[in-house]
C-alpha cells in the first residue's frame, strides 16, 4: 500500500540530489539540470499531497494546478538560462562557473 510518506521521502531524496549537483558541479548546464531535479522533487510532493490528503472536491485539484504552474515556470526559466549560458560561452569561451569571477571581491 502506497503511503504519503513514500512520496515525501522520495521527494526529499531527489531534492537533496539536486542540491548536491548545484553545489558540486562545475558546468553551468549541469547546474541547470540539477535545478530541474529540485523543481521536480517539489512536484512529486505536491502531487502526493493532492492525492492523499482527502480534501474536498473543490480544493483537491489545487495541487495539480500548482504543478502545472511550476512546470510552466521551469520551462521559461530553462529557456532564459540556456540563453544566458550561450551568451556566457560566446563572451568568455567557457561555461565553467569556477572561472567566472567578475564579481569576486
Amino acid at each position: 500500500m502506497i503511503e504519503l510518506l513514500h512520496f515525501q521521502v522520495l521527494a526529499s531524496a531527489l531534492f537533496c540530489l539536486g542540491v548536491y549537483g548545484v553545489l558540486a558541479r562545475k558546468s553551468a548546464v549541469l547546474i541547470l539540470m540539477s535545478i530541474e531535479l529540485m523543481l521536480n522533487a517539489v512536484n512529486i510532493n505536491l502531487v502526493g499531497y493532492a492525492a492523499f490528503r482527502g480534501f474536498e472536491e473543490h480544493h483537491r485539484s489545487l495541487g495539480h494546478v500548482l504543478v502545472v504552474f511550476v512546470i510552466t515556470i521551469a520551462a521559461a526559466e530553462l529557456a532564459l538560462a540556456i540563453a544566458i549560458i550561450l551568451r556566457l560561452y560566446r563572451n568568455r569561451g567557457s561555461v565553467n562557473v569556477d572561472k567566472i569571477e567578475l564579481l569576486k571581491g
Binding site: L10, L14, L17, G18, A24, R25, L30, S34, L37
Partner: peptide, 9 residues
C-alpha cells in the same frame, strides 16, 4: 527517479 538523479549528479 533516484538512479536517474544519481546519474545526473
Amino acid at each position: 527517479v533516484i538512479f536517474g538523479g544519481l546519474g545526473v549528479v
